[in-house]
Amino acid sequence: MSTDLVRSHRRLRIVTYALLGLLLVIGVGWGLFAFHQQHESRDASAKADRLIAAAHDAGIPTPLSKAQVVRLFGTDGGVVCQDPGSALSTARAYQGLSNGAAGPGQRGVIGDADLVVAERLVIRTYCPEEADAFERAVDDLRLGDTANP
């Protein structure tokens, strides 16, 4: 009878230690994840502050709140910094600088210079290594002061 009791106590200890070890691993993993998220949040917040200040200094209105800028660009600039000088990015920019018609009625227009300035500020803040490719992509655009009332 005492051997059955010793075996059940031993089994209980093994299960208890295994569960405690598992809980410890989960707790450490969650702590590391939370620390990483907090660090990214601080970095994204600092970059958003820099972008908003740069836009204000350039005279560009910033309709987005700081929280929206953080969610939109994060720490890496999001879609803006994904190869801004590529053919696809250039085509999207050209499409945005059109009259809005579809098919044969679509025509290019003189775009507002503030659009390029705003994207330039985002690239300089979030992915400065892509600034040269962006400048080459927008070099030949005809821009003017078209959006100001």
Score class of each variant (00 low, 15 high):
His36Ser: 11
Val122His: 01
Gly74Arg: 02
His56Phe: 00
Ser8Leu: 06
Gln38Ala: 13
Ala55Ile: 00
Gly77Tyr: 13
Phe35Ser: 11
Ser2Val: 15
Arg10Val: 13
Asp76Ala: 12
Ser2Pro: 12
Asn99Asp: 14
Phe33Ser: 11
Val70Cys: 05
Trp30Lys: 02
Ala58Thr: 01
Gly74Asp: 09
Val25Gln: 02
Leu22Gly: 12
Ile14Val: 15
Gly103Lys: 06
Ser65Cys: 03
Arg10Ala: 14
Gln82His: 15
Ala54Asn: 05
His36Ala: 09
Trp30Pro: 04
Ala46Arg: 05
His39Tyr: 09
Met1Glu: 14
Val122Ser: 01
Ser45Gln: 03
Arg10Asp: 15
Arg13Tyr: 08
Glu129His: 05
His9Ser: 08
Pro104Glu: 10
Leu22Cys: 09
Gln106Ser: 05
Leu72His: 13
Gly111Ala: 12
Asn99Arg: 07
Ile26Asn: 04
Ile60Leu: 12
Leu19Cys: 06
Leu23Met: 11
Ser8Asp: 07
Ser8Trp: 00
Thr3Trp: 11
Glu135Phe: 01
Gln37Ala: 08
Arg120Glu: 12
Asp76Ile: 03
Tyr126Val: 00
Asn99Gly: 03
Pro63Gln: 04
Leu20Tyr: 09
Ala147Gln: 12
Gly108Tyr: 04
Val117Leu: 13
Ser65His: 00
Val25Ile: 13
Tyr94Asn: 15
Ala137Trp: 05
Ala93Leu: 12
Ile123Phe: 02
Arg92Ile: 05
Gln82Glu: 11
Val6His: 09
Thr125Cys: 01
Gln68Gly: 03
Leu88Lys: 15
Ala118Thr: 09
